[in-house]
Amino acid sequence: MNVFLLEDDAEASDFIARGLRERGHHVETETDGRAAILKLGASEFDVLILDRMVPGLDGLAVLRSLRAMGRTTPTLLLTAMAQIVDRVDGLEAGADDYLVKPFAFAELAARVAALGRRAPVGEVPALLRVADVEMNLLRREVRRGGRLVELQPREFALLEQLLRNAGRVVTRTMLLDRVWNFGFDPKTNIVETHMSRLRGKLNQGFTRSAIRTVRGSGYMMEDDGC
Rank of each mutant, 00 (worst) to 15 (best):
Leu5Ile: 07
Arg139Glu: 15
Leu20Ser: 04
Asn203Leu: 03
Ala106Trp: 03
Thr75Gln: 10
Pro55Asn: 03
Ser217His: 12
Thr72Lys: 09
Glu44Lys: 03
Ala35Phe: 03
Ala61Cys: 02
Ser43Gly: 00
Phe15Tyr: 14
Gln152Tyr: 07
Gly205Val: 03
Leu38Tyr: 07
Glu107Leu: 14
Arg199Thr: 06
Val121Ile: 14
Ala114Tyr: 04
Leu148Asp: 05
Ala104Ile: 12
Asp132Ile: 11
Val88Lys: 11
Gln152Gly: 01
Asp86Phe: 10
Arg199Cys: 12
Asn189Cys: 03
Glu22Arg: 14
Phe105His: 13
Arg154Pro: 00
Asp96Gly: 01
Gly205Asp: 10
Lys39Asn: 05
Met135Gln: 11
Val130Leu: 06
Leu115Arg: 01
Pro125Val: 10
Val121Trp: 05
Arg87Cys: 11
Gly183Ile: 05
Thr31His: 12
Val54Cys: 07
His26Met: 12
Thr29Glu: 13
Gly205Trp: 12
Ser43Cys: 11
Ala131Glu: 13
Met69Ala: 15
Thr213Trp: 01
Arg197Lys: 14
Met135Phe: 12
Arg64Pro: 01
Met1Phe: 06
Glu107Tyr: 04
Thr173Gln: 15
Ala93Thr: 07
Glu107Ile: 13
Glu28Thr: 10
Arg140Trp: 01
Arg143Val: 05
Phe45Gln: 01
Leu137Val: 02
Thr79Trp: 08
Leu198His: 05
Val130Phe: 04
Arg140Pro: 00
Val130Thr: 14
Glu11Pro: 00
Met81Trp: 13
Leu40Ile: 12
Leu148Trp: 07
Asp89Trp: 08
Arg168Cys: 02
Leu128Gly: 03
Glu92Asp: 15
Asp89Ala: 15
Leu128Arg: 04
Phe182Val: 09
Glu192His: 10
Val100Trp: 12
Ala109Arg: 02
Leu60Asp: 05
Arg208Trp: 11
Arg67Ile: 06
Thr193Gly: 00
Gly59Pro: 03
Val3Ala: 01
Arg144Tyr: 05
Leu159Lys: 02
Gln152Trp: 06
Val62Thr: 10
Thr31Gly: 02
Glu141Thr: 13
Gly167Ile: 09
Leu50Trp: 08
Asp132Gly: 09
Ile37Glu: 14
Asn2Cys: 00
Ser196Gly: 00
Met221Arg: 08
Arg34His: 10
